[in-house]
Amino acid sequence: MDGLPSEEEQEMTTETATVDVDVTVPDPQTASHSKELDSNFQTVGEVRVANARMTCTDVNVYYGDKHAIKHCNLDIGENQVIAMIGPSGCGKSTFLRCLNRMNDTIDICRVTGEIKLDQQDIYDKRLDVVPLRAQVGMVFQKPNPFPKSIYDNIAYGPRIHGLASSRAELDEIVERSLSKAGLWNEVKDRLDQPGNGLSGGQQQRLCIARTIAVEPEVILMDEPCSALDPIATAKVEELIDELRQNYTIAIVTHSMQQAARVSQRTAYFHLGSLVEVGETTQVFTNPQHKLTEDYITGRFG
């Protein structure tokens, strides 16, 4: 597994490449933004919701000596899309990856605090990550289909979890997942062709279909549209909106327009701290914290 530096580096380069709308020259007034927030800083806005699916309490993440997430409290509501926004390196992806313990693959990463899924602490030592990840699925920044056929890409998850008892059932899962991801009509005649032969947008929808084939309850999306063109992005956004009916979704994005379009709640991260959480409309129209306001109005990237 890759260590931290390359991971971080990769994130930095791709993020800076995709941020093009909201980068402006920092003026002297916002120089204070680079300062870290006080350690006993309290998140502005309501971090708890009534119908919480996941509850995070005082979450801290360390990469070696680096304190990447600081005292973060956040609820992820059922059948809701929560968007996480913030400048590059603010820890939003790191936070997302804590939610299905994807950070376990990084040796030097350490997580403290409590993250509960349906009242069950997912960082409990006795908890098995395999069922957790079946329950909390993930879509990554770069489309990463398996170098196998389209069919096998979708069927892989159900196969290893034994979700289908017959070939017919598996066929049905594949069709249903691809239909939900809006890809069925485009690929139904070439299911045996390699998944990486599809276009970028199709690949990302294939990855989403692969995730929902396992029927998770929560879906984490780490900048799912950063490598896609506007048309493919629109399709994926539409899809997210539909998926919200059945799934709980947490999405990290660099596009504030996207956050505004797809999410019901928005969380703003700044240098490892969760600055502000609230209803998306409220965060975008009437931000409470100065940092949030500066970011949203494009005063700094």
């Binding site: 994807m102 693959t105 069922p131 990840r133 990554f140 170098p147 998850g157 290893i160 990855c207 692969r210």
Partner: peptide
């Protein structure tokens, strides 16, 4: 590429 490992781990392998 690590993305393949993440993809597999992500679906619960």
């Amino acid at each position: 590429p690590p993305s393949i490992r993440e993809a597999a781990l992500g679906v619960g392998a």
